[in-house]
Amino acid sequence: MKSFNCIGCPKGCLLCVEEENGEFTVTGNTCENGKRFAISEMTEPKRTICSTVKTVFEDAPVLPVKVSSDIPKDRIFDVMREINAVLLDKRIDRGDTVIENVLGLGVDVISTSDILNRK
């Protein structure tokens, strides 16, 4: 049996997962997301990344970004290297893509702020 806290919401339920012949039984969760998270932690743990990319603009030297959906936990630092290699020279908007299909993981790195673009 493994037990860990859910990160889905501030409740932080203590989840317990039991594995038997490849089947998982989850207890301690108070919603379906908790169950999904518990199973994914056992099979392929995933996380999001929120970070910043450098820009050439003085009024906003960095732009906040995130990955468009969760990535495998063990690729976090690989993706961070890609994010840190960017120097943005276009005034892109919130939601615009900064890196398409980063490292072939099937997710984009997207802007989370309109700081470069708001009048």
Partner: peptide
């Protein structure tokens, strides 16, 4: 699950 700037903007 929004980033802080996304929420407030």
């Amino acid at each position: 699950r929004l980033a802080g700037p996304e929420y407030v903007e």
